[in-house]
Write a protein that binds this DNA or RNA. Structure first.
Lengths: 220, 220
DNA sequence: GACCAAATGAACCAACTGGTACAATTTACC
DNA sequence: GGTAAATTGTACCAGTTGGTTCATTTGGTC
């Protein structure tokens, strides 16, 4: 996302192709993300990914071993991103209630703006999070968001703003659920109820409802 | 579900097999449900469904046309069930706050008790609810749950129990989100946070939190 | 008990799909 | 400019998969 540029170094002679491992890797990962997000793990076709790529199927297997290895790489990349997002939150300076409302809003927006992430998490859950379990990268980190929430929440309780007795995880799950569901179930909601929760004239209201709901959950 | 019994009529001679269209249909549908729920539409294998069935692959195509036809039939059956559940709710006699709390609890329980339904809805959303759209059966009904909620909500507003200005759909989506998410994302939540939301010692607390959250959303 | 539509069985197949064998080319490094 | 390791291209394949062909059996009807 930051720099999509493949950066082909200036070539002296005139090689039929230029080596660019990192560029190839990124190109494959992006094509794979698009394909997996759209069709799931079993629905995705390696040949289709290869076709979307600047390079060939051969490279996919060279860099990622097999289809699942590629899928795992896509998952890891997405979790990396949301972790960076969570780390990037800077709410320390705000009073607890404002911090929590802002956190809920940010979380809602992140989901609304990244349906690919939401779909990938759905797909991974269909597979019982088997690949999350396998991944060595993902096992190591996380939980930072829970710490953030706990800190804000305890500050809020100390300040008399929030009622005591709640679990940080419970708060996080509530925020997540209210942020995730509109995106993950957008298609079926639209079919069944005729409302498109992603439409620009509906989303803001749903966003406000989500934030309000979280704040009402916390206050006395 | 009601009577699994295949009812082989008493045979006169000794036929190598007994005709039983309804039994065969049901047997196929059940096998298909299990397979689709576990592996999704593209991940499911028709041969595997056939193997789980008392009959042969031939019959699947005889009764359901093709793989997607079978999938659609499974989806329709599940939506039939939840519609029956929603219709079966009898909350009219209760005061609005109790009715709403009970509805939230029932909805939560239905999701917790029917992970197959939840997974199927996830899978269908991965496919952009394309099959819900195609299905003629599903297009005709639904919305009853929204009416139920609206009635309760307006009663609550009239009685001064609930704050005005909310949409019935918004209330339903909040209840659904809080009921759906724990089940749909159970695997990834467990991987990332180490908590199994389906565990019998955790589920009741989450249930109570969900109900509380809904009620706090409604009250003044 | 003859007849026919509905229901079922068993083997088969063409297309697809993940993955590979075999080289060829490029680049870093001396 | 020679050498080896890293990187890429091309053609190919064996197993799988959704779907079908062809023949047979069953059960109701007259």
């Amino acid at each position: 996302m930051e720099k999509t540029d493949t950066a082909p170094r200036p070539d002296r002679k005139s090689p039929s192709w230029t080596q660019d491992p990192e560029g190839v890797r990124r190109s494959i990962l992006e094509a794979a993300r698009i394909e997996f997000v759209e069709h799931g793990l079993s629905g995705a076709r390696v040949d289709e990914i290869a076709a979307k790529t600047a390079t060939s199927k051969r490279m996919i297997y060279y860099y990622f071993g097999d289809k699942e290895g590629l899928y795992r790489a896509v998952i890891e990349e997405m979790y990396d991103r949301i972790r960076r997002f969570e780390r990037g939150l800077d709410l320390g300076a705000l009073p607890p209630d404002e911090a929590m409302a802002k956190l809920a809003g940010f979380t809602f927006d992140y989901h609304a703006d990244n349906p690919d992430f939401v779909r990938m998490v759905m797909i991974e859950n269909i597979h019982h999070a088997r690949h999350l379990a396998t991944s060595t990268k993902i096992a190591t980190l996380n939980l930072s968001i829970i710490d953030v929430i706990r800190e804000i929440y305890e500050g809020g309780v100390a300040a008399g703003l929030f009622r005591p007795g709640l679990e940080a995880l419970d708060i996080h799950l509530t925020i997540s659920a209210l942020s995730f569901y509109n995106v993950s179930n957008r298609a079926s909601i639209r079919q069944v109820f005729g409302h498109d929760m992603g439409a620009p004239d509906i989303l803001p209201q749903r966003r406000q409802t989500a934030i309000d709901t979280v704040m009402r959950m916390l206050r006395h």
